[in-house]
Design a protein around this nucleic acid. Sequence first.
DNA 1: TCACCGGACCGTAACGGTTCAGAGCCTCAC
DNA 2: GTGAGGCTCTGAACCGTTACGGTCCGGTGA
Lengths: 367, 367
Amino acid sequence: MPGPSHVRRPATLASLAAELGVSRTTVSNAYNRPDQLSAPLRERVLEAARRLGYPGPDPVARSLRTRKAGAVGLLLTEALSYAFRDPAATGFLEGLALACEQANQGLLLVPVSPDHVDVTAVHQAGVDGFVVYSVREDDPHFMAVLERPVPTVVCDQPTGVEGVDRVGVDDRAGMLGLARHLTGLGHRRFGVICMRLAAGHNDGPASAQRQESITYPVQRDRLGGIRDGLAEVGVDWADVPVIERFEHSVEAGRDAAAELMAAHADLTAVVCTSDILALGALQHAAERGLSVPDDLSVTGFDGVPEAGRAGLTTVNQPVLEKGRIAGELLLQRGDRNRSRRVTLPTELVVGTTSGPPRSDQRFFSGW
Amino acid sequence: MPGPSHVRRPATLASLAAELGVSRTTVSNAYNRPDQLSAPLRERVLEAARRLGYPGPDPVARSLRTRKAGAVGLLLTEALSYAFRDPAATGFLEGLALACEQANQGLLLVPVSPDHVDVTAVHQAGVDGFVVYSVREDDPHFMAVLERPVPTVVCDQPTGVEGVDRVGVDDRAGMLGLARHLTGLGHRRFGVICMRLAAGHNDGPASAQRQESITYPVQRDRLGGIRDGLAEVGVDWADVPVIERFEHSVEAGRDAAAELMAAHADLTAVVCTSDILALGALQHAAERGLSVPDDLSVTGFDGVPEAGRAGLTTVNQPVLEKGRIAGELLLQRGDRNRSRRVTLPTELVVGTTSGPPRSDQRFFSGW
DNA sequence: TCACCGGACCGTAACGGTTCAGAGCCTCAC
DNA sequence: GTGAGGCTCTGAACCGTTACGGTCCGGTGA
């Protein structure tokens, strides 16, 4: 098997042209516009290229001249590797990759350092546009993206950025439906487990003040949906404990559930703002010996495959579709200039983790 | 919230320099080498940049000049989106992404068209090197990568390419250990389900001839490992039916198992060359009413999370580690020029899907 | 006074292509 | 014979930046 050709400094289009005694234009055309030169000459060019080990036009130089990179940048707030761990993100990426490969565009995962903020990677990225996946409103990387003179599409959050297309779901409505499902079953004593609400590490109860200053619109909407749903049956939001976790993992959900139940043993329903957290809550319930849904109802959000297998009551959102549409919004942008907003439908999925509270608990809740 | 700046044609370094009456070098230095100019002047430059909406040095132009793109290209044979569906690939990607983000390098997923071969995407990719994940020996995209004058690292396959680093596991040894486990349990009647062996769609038995012309070394080694293991107890490989599937999915595994068992109802063990296929085989066994492992033993390869949950007997390989090392081989390549080979260990995991064959079956196998 | 030095800044030449307006030249119709 | 038009091919400008090797100037030590 032949080895790679990176040993020798490769020939350039110019050197190839000189070798052949033709103009650089002609060599360029041999690659890009075969109809612009005679077949024999073209063959002669290509043959010489083979002989001299010319790898074809340099992609970077071409990008500079043509002003297109042939790639889409993807920005995530989390560490890059996170994208491959979170099933919701994975689904999104699959959809986005689908759109990219259909348009023959590369997908550049922009490395963001989770620890120290460093936006150079955003400046480094040779891309024709950015897809931003679910980042904080005041994310510095996102700011850097906005400064780049390329189109941008946001998935989920931040919302309402001028001149930027967005695709997402109606998180508030989705959660509202879920809350009604639970209140309809008779629940009145709720606890909530949510994801990171703003910059800064806050593992524990989310104070009213913190809830005021949420910088993740999705979390804001999901909490808002729950609050609205509970308000309909007279449950005061101030009485609902909300536990926040910085990390988004099953482990974090389990841990949060433990914290929640330790302080509020009388809850009949735990609403989580993601399936991953809910799966953790289910783990905790099992460890605590609570029967779900008899002793406790647990719900999630997203509709990831594992949730389906676990029979979790949740709100499905079309993650793959979100990715696909994000890609299409970016790539198929005609001469449109106004920003477009796409809101996809969610669907309440009633699984086996939600049911009416025990009658004694129901009675208890009447106090 | 402010909008993006892609409306106006952005200022260039040159125009900024002209505006300020300084040289372009100075502006460049303001961004890249703050120590090369006085602080006040630097501030003046940056202020003017802000005022004129100069987004900082163009990444593509910079790449052209500095000859580095700040990104690693990833080549997969399958459609891009596949990478996010196969858990083994996902694990690999996570590891690779880890290495990339540590080196502050982007990860460019190169779009390959699964249907019609089109290597332009490989030529398009502005990257400093390629990681090739598990492709066919004669894959045209891979050939195109080799022509690019950049370093390349291969994961798994193809093997033995001159001048190209490689990371993988000893697939043959892994499978050999697994085969010994099964023969040790008493199995003598085997069936095999394997992944795509070569170019071309072959869903069905893999003839001896096809097995001769395998172009996926990993499959060659895994099958070879089984063969060697069976030979040790006198089982003739010619008597072992091998079913191939083009698609790599649970569904395909289920289907292949059905085909296998329909023709060979007397098998006591089905060895699959991947966990995904094995999970499908388990599904089929369940549908057929076979008790695993009493009626049938089923094994996989890879050690994906789902296999763990299913209790599958399999061969674990450190997929995340493979990705991380692939990235490191590419990024931390010193002035080394000889190609490096890294072989990571595998581990036999005995789950609940393998056990001794029924005694009557064992007797039967003695015929 | 003068050679020398270091900091601050600059001019020029790449980097490797693409693009566009032609220049030749040949053919064909009139 | 001649002008129109088509096919090939060329020359020069341009894309936006950084690398390299300077220059300029004020200060210093002898």
